[in-house]
Amino acid sequence: MRSPRTRGRSGRPLSLLLALLCALRAKVCGASGQFELEILSMQNVNGELQNGNCCGGARNPGDRKCTRDECDTYFKVCLKEYQSRVTAGGPCSFGSGSTPVIGGNTFNLKASRGNDRNRIVLPFSFAWPRSYTLLVEAWDSSNDTVQPDSIIEKASHSGMINPSRQWQTLKQNTGVAHFEYQIRVTCDDYYYGFGCNKFCRPRDDFFGHYACDQNGNKTCMEGWMGPECNRAICRQGCSPKHGSCKLPGDCRCQYGWQGLYCDKCIPHPGCVHGICNEPWQCLCETNWGGQLCDKDLNYCGTHQPCLNGGTCSNTGPDKYQCSCPEGYSGPNCEIA
């Protein structure tokens, strides 16, 4: 077999650049994923090309098998939009790539799955459409700058595939050579959905506090709520009108309100015997008056200043008058 000629994957630097851009600016990249293909086995019993010639040398006159050299087999892949009637021409609109030389006439790579040499990765940054057309071609490398490479066999497949970690196996069982391969579509990290176009990256910072479920939905951490999980859940009972919080379990009062639940107004400074319904009010309790509710309107009842059976009459805020019984006098009937 001729010395292998290595063929790198098509578009790999571009895919790395796209992945970097997506990581830095995830909101700009609407989708991100990759179409993967792995060659599993190849069977070319006679070492022939599609045109019937030998990959190298002439045929044995007896059994008609190619004798001089085995094929240097590598694969090309073209991925494009779905076609009900597949045409070989036209651009590979979803991507293209190739393997290096991975074997001779016949080989089996099932035991070495995950080997990069027999895998082609086609990254995409558009919403995966699920339906596709795939062209797979086996080629013989001439290892010659003058002699062109020659095609051994080709296969085409049109179908639908959803993103999954599971592989789907396909076979080419007609023509001079048979080969088996597997395909799958996977979303990149933080991308979800059938189109790999739903973005969700767990975070716990100013912009949100959430994890992501298997469908890419945000699940808020304990103590947080809202579409972006950036609204803290305040202390139970915290007034929704007069209290708020920036951290879970907190209850910060608005100006003019106080209390554990921010449901108590702050009265006017200096208010003595008054209450409030709104901040800075001083609504006097019964029998109290004045701007600060510090004037006693029922001095008689509060202090009972009249002595010796005198009768007390309220005459104004903090004022009274005693009517003394016979034989007593003085402001409080204290003089006998």
Score class of each variant (00 low, 15 high):
residue 137 E to G: 07
residue 76 K to I: 15
residue 161 I to S: 08
residue 268 H to L: 05
residue 167 W to G: 00
residue 123 P to T: 02
residue 17 L to R: 00
residue 121 V to L: 12
residue 335 I to N: 08
residue 295 K to N: 09
residue 211 A to D: 02
residue 279 P to L: 02
residue 18 L to F: 10
residue 157 H to D: 12
residue 288 W to L: 09
residue 55 C to W: 01
residue 128 W to S: 11
residue 154 K to R: 13
residue 101 V to L: 13
residue 273 H to Q: 08
residue 210 Y to H: 10
residue 261 Y to S: 05
residue 296 D to V: 02
residue 308 N to D: 12
residue 157 H to R: 05
residue 35 F to Y: 01
residue 139 W to R: 08
residue 53 N to I: 13
residue 231 R to G: 14
residue 221 M to V: 12
residue 10 S to F: 13
residue 127 A to D: 01
residue 78 C to G: 02
residue 51 N to S: 02
residue 123 P to A: 03
residue 118 N to D: 11
residue 316 G to V: 14
residue 161 I to V: 07
residue 25 R to L: 15
residue 131 S to Y: 01
residue 77 V to M: 03
residue 10 S to Y: 15
residue 109 L to H: 04
residue 211 A to G: 07
residue 142 S to T: 11
residue 227 P to A: 09
residue 66 C to F: 11
residue 233 I to V: 15
residue 236 Q to K: 05
residue 189 D to N: 06
residue 248 P to R: 15
residue 78 C to R: 00
residue 17 L to V: 05
residue 251 C to G: 14
residue 263 D to Y: 04
residue 84 S to F: 08
residue 170 L to M: 01
residue 296 D to H: 04
residue 70 E to Q: 14
residue 47 G to E: 08
residue 227 P to L: 03
residue 103 G to R: 08
residue 318 D to E: 11
residue 286 T to P: 01
residue 63 D to A: 04
residue 328 Y to N: 09
residue 33 G to R: 00
residue 275 I to N: 00
residue 277 N to I: 01
residue 154 K to E: 09
residue 204 D to A: 13
residue 121 V to M: 04
residue 193 G to A: 08
residue 189 D to G: 05
residue 11 G to A: 01
residue 308 N to T: 10
residue 150 S to T: 14
residue 174 T to R: 08
residue 71 C to S: 11
residue 159 G to A: 13
residue 48 E to V: 14
residue 172 Q to R: 14
residue 298 N to D: 07
residue 273 H to L: 02
residue 26 A to P: 03
residue 336 A to T: 11
residue 280 W to L: 08
residue 56 G to A: 03
residue 185 V to M: 06
residue 217 N to H: 14
residue 173 N to H: 11
residue 311 T to S: 11
residue 152 I to V: 07
residue 211 A to T: 06
residue 269 P to R: 11
residue 119 R to C: 07
residue 292 L to I: 03
residue 114 G to A: 15
residue 119 R to S: 05
residue 57 G to C: 13
residue 10 S to C: 04
residue 204 D to V: 12
residue 54 C to W: 06
residue 29 C to F: 14
residue 27 K to M: 12
residue 283 L to V: 08
residue 136 V to M: 01
residue 240 P to L: 01
residue 39 I to S: 01
residue 166 Q to P: 13
residue 115 N to T: 13
residue 264 K to T: 06
residue 56 G to R: 02
residue 235 R to G: 15
residue 39 I to N: 01
residue 94 F to I: 09
residue 118 N to T: 15
residue 217 N to S: 14
residue 119 R to H: 12
residue 298 N to I: 00
residue 156 S to P: 09
residue 242 H to Y: 05
residue 299 Y to H: 04
residue 57 G to D: 10
residue 227 P to H: 04
residue 265 C to R: 02
residue 295 K to I: 07
residue 184 R to S: 00
residue 29 C to W: 07
residue 287 N to K: 00
residue 118 N to S: 05
residue 172 Q to L: 15
residue 138 A to S: 02
residue 140 D to Y: 10
residue 168 Q to H: 12
residue 234 C to F: 04
residue 27 K to R: 08
residue 31 A to P: 02
residue 283 L to F: 03
residue 151 I to M: 11
residue 176 V to D: 07
residue 215 N to S: 08
residue 300 C to G: 02
residue 194 F to S: 11
residue 235 R to Q: 09
residue 297 L to H: 09
residue 231 R to T: 06
residue 125 S to N: 02
residue 99 T to R: 00
residue 114 G to V: 05
residue 171 K to M: 12
residue 333 C to R: 03
residue 325 P to A: 05
residue 166 Q to L: 11
residue 100 P to R: 11
residue 26 A to G: 02
residue 173 N to K: 10
residue 171 K to Q: 13
residue 97 G to V: 07
residue 51 N to I: 13
residue 191 Y to F: 11
residue 76 K to E: 14
residue 242 H to D: 15
residue 189 D to E: 07
residue 34 Q to K: 08
residue 154 K to T: 12
residue 138 A to V: 11
residue 251 C to R: 13
residue 89 G to R: 11
residue 42 M to T: 03
residue 269 P to T: 08
residue 255 Y to F: 05
residue 35 F to I: 10
residue 61 P to L: 13
residue 178 H to D: 10
residue 309 G to A: 08
residue 132 Y to H: 09
residue 85 R to L: 13
residue 213 D to Y: 02
residue 300 C to R: 01
residue 264 K to R: 12
residue 12 R to H: 13
residue 102 I to V: 01
residue 198 K to E: 11
residue 317 P to L: 14
residue 53 N to S: 01
residue 234 C to S: 05
residue 204 D to N: 07
residue 174 T to A: 07
residue 303 H to P: 03
residue 335 I to T: 04
residue 120 I to L: 12
residue 39 I to V: 08
residue 122 L to M: 04
residue 166 Q to R: 13
residue 211 A to P: 10
residue 195 G to R: 09
residue 294 D to E: 05
residue 335 I to F: 14
residue 142 S to G: 11
residue 161 I to N: 01
residue 254 Q to P: 09
residue 326 E to G: 10
residue 177 A to T: 11
residue 213 D to G: 06
residue 179 F to I: 09
residue 236 Q to E: 14
residue 42 M to I: 11
residue 247 L to H: 03
residue 73 T to I: 14
residue 193 G to V: 00
residue 6 T to S: 14
residue 54 C to Y: 10
residue 100 P to S: 08
residue 258 Q to E: 14
residue 218 K to I: 15
residue 37 L to S: 01
residue 196 C to Y: 05
residue 261 Y to D: 10
